[in-house]
């Protein structure tokens, strides 16, 4: 339960940040772009993510207490940034629905949201890499979070804005391929590196992972297939069959990253007495 809610939370927020990031880039490249679906979905994902994080709490009704310690707590800061990010995106979405003519405001909100979201992902990385979980205490945690946001964001943005984003299709495909390549280039060597660690906590984490190695295999198969598919469709013109391929790519990337994130949480082993 705990791992599932945290997985939903971080995947949704990161996907949302990714989408918002590409809406912002697209808007800067094409001032006429609207990207309504993408904005609404980003807002929806943000809300789901926030709800998941609230329901992860033992006391969801007291969730707002988490805002009290901005000055000292990384987690409190992360919650602030998540809340602000989601608020901005939801506001943008609301304006879309209620007063779509205020394009400037929407663009402004999206750009600010993208920046807040990027910082937020950094804070997410920081809360985990600063925890007493040696398995998380590597730069791979940040890379995984950012690359997940970029790869999921790019493909979802493309799928949700097929027509409008058509001009960015190739850039998006290259971005996805690059993000996945970086993710693999960092995460896989990191795992190999960890496997020779003397830390008992890390070894325990790896034992958990190896007990779920089938899931790990699917994670990478899905992510790779999703990225390859994204590159594949980029060379063709839009058509219903291509649209389906974009959707397939999005699903593969999303499922792959979700499995990966679940494993990330499942491998949590905190140090303790006799567990260094």
């Amino acid at each position: 339960m705990g791992n599932a809610t945290l997985t939903i939370f971080s995947i949704c927020i990161q996907a949302s940040v990714g989408i918002v990031l590409f809406i912002a880039i697209a808007k800067l490249l094409n001032k006429e772009g609207i990207f309504k679906n993408a904005t609404l979905v980003a807002a929806g994902l943000g809300i789901i993510g926030m709800l998941a994080s609230v329901f992860h709490l033992g006391q969801p009704m007291k969730a707002f207490f988490a805002l009290y310690q901005f000055s000292s707590s990384l987690l409190s800061r992360e919650i602030w940034f998540t809340a602000i990010f989601v608020a901005l995106v939801v506001l943008a979405a609301l304006i879309f629905m209620l007063k779509p003519e205020n394009k400037g405001i929407i663009t402004g909100l999206i750009v600010v949201a993208a920046l807040v979201g990027l910082i937020d992902i950094g804070l997410m990385g920081a809360i985990y890499s600063n925890a007493s979980v040696p398995f998380w205490q590597t730069s791979a945690t940040f890379v995984e979070f950012y690359m997940a946001a970029i790869s999921m964001g790019a493909i979802l943005f493309l799928f949700l804005s097929l027509q409008e984003a058509n001009f960015m299709k190739k850039i998006l495909a290259v971005t996805i391929a690059a993000a996945v390549a970086i993710q693999i280039a960092v995460v896989i060597p990191n795992l190999i590196n960890l496997s020779i660690s003397s830390s008992m906590a890390i070894q325990s984490s790896l034992v958990i992972l190896s007990s779920m190695s089938l899931a790990g295999l699917f994670e990478w198969l899905f992510i790779l297939a999703g990225a390859i598919l994204a590159v594949w469709v980029a060379k063709d013109e839009l058509s219903p069959s291509i649209n389906n391929l974009v959707l397939s790519s999005a699903v593969l990337l999303l499922v792959g990253q979700t499995i990966g994130r679940y494993l990330f949480y499942a491998a949590m082993v905190v140090t303790g007495i006799g567990i260094s």
Binding site: G2, H56, L57, G58, Q59, P60, K62, A63, F65, A66, Y68, S73, L75, I127, Y128, N130, A131, S132, V133, M268, V270, T271, G272, I273, I275
Partner: peptide, 23 residues
């Protein structure tokens, strides 16, 4: 004040804080 976020569980290097079931 505790909201049961369990971040202290992840943070304490000695694995001291624990989630109280039911509460």
């Amino acid at each position: 004040l505790c909201i049961g976020c369990q971040y202290c569980i992840m943070n304490c290097p000695y694995s001291v804080p624990q989630l109280l079931p039911e509460r």
